[in-house]
Design a protein around this nucleic acid. Structure first.
Length: 437
RNA sequence: GUCCCUAUCGUCUAGCCAGGUCUAGGACAUUGGAUUUUCAUUCCAACGACCGGGGUUCGAAUCCCCGUGGGGACGCCA
C-alpha cells in the first residue's frame, strides 16, 4: 500500500518552527517511501485573516522546499483540503455515530460517548502506550462547528492517511482518536509521535515569542532553506552514522522512524548558524552568486556598478569567508565604494603596536613600482622588501587590509588586493595615509 | 491535582532493544595551539556526560523497581 501522510496546520499567521519540523518529518517520510504528502488546512473556527495566514504558511513550506502532492493550489483526489469546506462530510460521519449510539446532544453541543476501555497505541516511536479515556468529549460545538478531534480523525479516514506523524503533545490525545477510529470501524493508521522542540533557555517548548521560533525569521535573515531543513531534521532524528551536513535528498533517503529520538530537544541557534555557514560554503559558485546578488541588491546603500566580471570576482573571493548572508553586504561593501567606514575596534587592533602608518607608506611605494597587483607578485614584493629591511612581513598586512577595506578581517588579503586592482588600492592607501594620520 | 512520555558532555546526539570490545564516540559552543600570508578560513589539541538509590548478573550506560529532574495532555483551541 502506498504511504499517505499529511501535514494539517491551522493557519495562524505565522509558521512555527515546531510545525515546520512536523511538516518536514512528514515530507521526509513521504519522499523516503515514495508516498504522497498531503497538505490539509485545519481552518475551522478561526476569525483571523486566513487568506494572509495561509500565504505565510504556503510561502514557508515552499521556501523550505516541502512540496505537497495534494492540497491547496495543487488539488487532488481527496479534496476539499480545507476543513471549512467539508461540512457535509462531517455531517455524514456524525450520522454514523448517532446511529451507533455513540453521539448524543448535551447543552446544545454534540458529545462522543467513549467506550471506557483501555486503548493501546502502538506508536512507531514510543512503542506501546496504554491509556483510558474516561470522559465523553464534544465533537460539535453548540454553534454547530465540529471539533478538532473529530475532524482530524474523519479527514484521516476519508483521505486514507496511512501514517500520522505529529508532535508528542498529541500523545495523550490519541486515545480519543483511537476511540473514534474504532467507532467508525475504520482501520488505524500507523502513529508516529515525535519529540518536541524546547526553548534554548527557560522552561517549556518553543513559543512563537522565542527568538528563532518562526520560519519567517530565517527567511528575513537570509538563511539558506537547505540549512534550516538540515538542522531541523537533526532535532529529534539522526542517521546513526554521525553524518550532519546533508542535503534534503540525502536526508530523505536515510530518514525513517527508528532514527527518531524519544526525548525532547532544546533549540540551539548557534548550531543552526553553523549549519547555515556550512551550506553557504557548499553552494555552487553560480548559486551563491545569484543569492549574493539578491542579498546585496536589497541592501540599498550598495551600488554594484556595471562591471559584471568584477562583481563575479568579488563574490567568488568572499564566499569561502561568508558565515551568513545577512551580514554579507557589510562584508563586501568596500569593494563597491571608496566611502567605506573605518571600523573603530579594528583600528585599535591594527594600531596596537609598531608603526603601521610607516609600513603603509612603504607598501604604497612597493605597489607603485608593480605593474599590477597580481596576488603572488604582490606578496613576494612585500616579503622581499620586509626581508631586506629585517621586518616581519606580517607587519604590513593588517594595516594594508585596514586601509583599503576599513575592516580587520575579510577575504584572503592578496587575492583581495588583486580583485580591487592597483588603481583603487593606491588611491585608498593615499587617502588612508592622510585620514588616519 | 490526575494521567502519559522522557532522562548520556553546557547543547544536539551515537551506544541501550540482542549486558562485557565504553579508560563512553561524533557535532555545536568554549579554551589553547599551528599554518612564520592577514582573516570571519583550514588543521590540531584540551575541556566536558552515563540523574540518584536499590535490585538482577561473574559483569550494567545498557535489563527491572523506586525516587528525582525535565516535558506534555487533561478546552464547546488546534
Amino acid at each position: 500500500m502506498k504511504t499517505r501522510v499529511r501535514f494539517a496546520p491551522s493557519p495562524t499567521g505565522f509558521f512555527h518552527i515546531g510545525s515546520a519540523r512536523t511538516a518536514l518529518f512528514n515530507w521526509l517520510y513521504a519522499r523516503h517511501t515514495g508516498g504522497t504528502f498531503v497538505l490539509r488546512i485545519e481552518d475551522t473556527d478561526h476569525e483571523r485573516n486566513t487568506e494572509e495566514a495561509l500565504t505565510v504558511l504556503k510561502d514557508g513550506m515552499r521556501w523550505l522546499g516541502m512540496d505537497w502532492d495534494e492540497g491547496p493550489d495543487v488539488g487532488g483526489e481527496y479534496g476539499p483540503y480545507f476543513q471549512s469546506r467539508r461540512d457535509d462530510i462531517y455531517a455524514k460521519y456524525l450520522e454514523i455515530l448517532r446511529k451507533n449510539g455513540r453521539a448524543y446532544d448535551k447543552d446544545g453541543a454534540v458529545f462522543f460517548k467513549v467506550s471506557g476501555e483501555e486503548q493501546v497505541l502502538h506508536d512507531a516511536v514510543y512503542g506501546n502506550v496504554a491509556r483510558t479515556e474516561e470522559k465523553d468529549f464534544p465533537i460539535f460545538r453548540s454553534n454547530g462547528t465540529p471539533v478538532f478531534h473529530f475532524v482530524n480523525v474523519v479527514d484521516d479516514i476519508c483521505m486514507e492517511i496511512t501514517h500520522v506523524i505529529r508532535g508528542q503533545d498529541h500523545l495523550t490525545n490519541t486515545n480519543k482518536h483511537l476511540e473514534l477510529f474504532k467507532a467508525f470501524g475504520a482501520p488505524l493508521p500507523q502513529f508516529a509521535h515525535i519529540p518536541l522542540i524546547l526553548k534554548s533557555d527557560g522552561q517549556g517548548k518553543m513559543s512563537k515569542r522565542d527568538r528563532g521560533a518562526l520560519i519567517e525569521e530565517y527567511q528575513q535573515k537570509k538563511f539558506l532553506p537547505e540549512a534550516v531543513v538540515n538542522y531541523l531534521s537533526l532535532l529529534g532524528w539522526n542517521p546513526k552514522n554521525d553524518r550532519e551536513i546533508m542535503s534534503a535528498e540525502e536526508i530523505a533517503k536515510l530518514f525513517d522512524f527508528p532514527g527518531i529520538v524519544k526525548s525532547n530537544a532544546r533549540f540551539d541557534e548557534r548550531k543552526m548558524a553553523h549549519f547555515n555557514t556550512e551550506h553557504i560554503r557548499m553552494l555552487p559558485a553560480d548559486k551563491f552568486r545569484a543569492l549574493a546578488l539578491e542579498t546585496v541588491k536589497e541592501a540599498e546603500n550598495i551600488d554594484l556598478g556595471s562591471d559584471g566580471e568584477y562583481v563575479k570576482k568579488v563574490f567568488a573571493l568572499c564566499q569561502p569567508k561568508a558565515s551568513n548572508m545577512e551580514s554579507f553586504p557589510s562584508m563586501v561593501d568596500y569593494f563597491f565604494t571608496d566611502e567605506y567606514a573605518f571600523d573603530e575596534t579594528a583600528k585599535e587592533r591594527v594600531f596596537k603596536k609598531g608603526d603601521p602608518l610607516a609600513r603603509l607608506a612603504e607598501v604604497k611605494e612597493i605597489f607603485e613600482k608593480l605593474d599590477s597587483l597580481e596576488a603572488e607578485k604582490t606578496h613576494d614584493a612585500i616579503a622581499a622588501y620586509a626581508e631586506a629591511k629585517g621586518v616581519k612581513p606580517t607587519e604590513f598586512f593588517s594595516i594594508t587590509r585596514f586601509a583599503v577595506s576599513g575592516h580587520a578581517g575579510g577575504p584572503d588579503l592578496f587575492p583581495m588586493l588583486e580583485v580591487l586592482g592597483k588603481d583603487r588600492v593606491l588611491r585608498r592607501i593615499a587617502a588612508a595615509l592622510k585620514s588616519l594620520a
